Simulated assay, not measured.
Amino acid sequence: MSTAAIDYPISLAIEDFAPVLFTTVGVVLLRRVLGGGPAMIAAAVFVGVGGLTKAGAKLMAAADGPVLPWLSEMLFPFLTLGFGLLCLAAARTRTGTSPNWLRYLVIGLTVVCGLGAVLARDSIPMLVSTTVFATITGIYLIGIARDRDDTVTAALFGVQLLSFYILGPLASRADQSVTLQWIEQLCNTAAQAAFLAAAWRLSAATVTSEKAEATGR
């Protein structure tokens, strides 16, 4: 989506940083649940940087700075990498291993969608890989929450997962009015706030469980 098509208000551009913050902090919190290795750190960095590229491009356009469509289009490539790592970590936590089919899928789909994006000169093909990996991540996180009999947390992860299917296609539309973007951004902020709340609940429950095991209770 080109930032040249809309005269963005500053308030709209600034609000776009809120869901980026919520999602990134949520991924950081999930390190306690999914493992604290370098892969989870990289996932948080990729998700955070991806969100910042689009929000940053929008803010520059709103402030009458340079219009950089290529910067905005880095969103889905970075999200693909971030959620690719997340789905592998979530699978390993839920089942004890990252299945071969999932590893091949993450590598293969990333390459295929990346080549498609290069050939099409558009990042939209990588929306496909982002959605697939986010879906797998969400399913595993919902499963982890349900394994712990935490229906509320499972529902919160479900809200964030549903947002990919609703907001992704909307955000990829060329006819982006300011009103539509306000609706998209506020809904996205609510969805990522749900993800943050779910990650916090799951992380807090993990800490409590680890403490109980350590004290023999």
Rank of each mutant, 00 (worst) to 15 (best):
D64G: 11
D175T: 13
G37N: 06
A120C: 04
T135Q: 01
V152E: 06
T206E: 15
R103E: 15
A62Y: 03
S209Y: 06
P77T: 14
A44R: 00
R121L: 07
D7H: 14
A117K: 06
G65K: 09
F78L: 14
L202C: 07
G82N: 04
R32K: 13
S163M: 08
L68T: 14
W101F: 14
R32C: 01
M74R: 07
L161A: 15
A145S: 10
A18L: 14
G158K: 01
V47A: 04
V159I: 15
W70C: 04
P99Q: 07
F157M: 08
L141H: 02
V27P: 00
D7P: 01
V111C: 00
A120K: 04
F133K: 02
A197W: 01
D149M: 03
I124K: 11
P19S: 11
G50E: 04
V178I: 12
A205Q: 12
V28L: 03
D175H: 01
L127P: 00
F76P: 04
A190W: 01
F78V: 11
T80I: 02
L86K: 04
G84H: 09
A44F: 00
L109G: 03
L59I: 07
L86P: 00
L52D: 06
G138P: 03
S98V: 10
P77S: 10
F83I: 04
N100C: 06
L167M: 09
S172M: 07
T137S: 15
T93S: 13
A55W: 09
Q185P: 02
A198V: 10
G216F: 05
R201M: 07
G116T: 09
T23W: 01
P9D: 12
T95S: 15
A13Q: 09
A5V: 15
W182M: 08
E15T: 13
T208Q: 13
A197F: 01
Q192F: 13
A174D: 10
K211E: 06
L85M: 11
A155G: 08
D147N: 13
A13G: 12
E210A: 15
N100Y: 01
L30N: 10
L86V: 06
I142A: 13
S177I: 08
P77D: 14
L141I: 09
T179Q: 06
T206P: 02
V132W: 03
A42G: 11
R94I: 05
I183D: 04
F78M: 14
L115D: 11
P9I: 12
D175I: 04
G96F: 01
V207H: 07
L34I: 10
L170A: 15
V112R: 02
S177C: 05
L196N: 09
A39M: 10
P169Y: 02
W200N: 09
V159K: 04
V159M: 03
A5R: 09
M1P: 14
I144P: 00
T189G: 11
F46L: 07
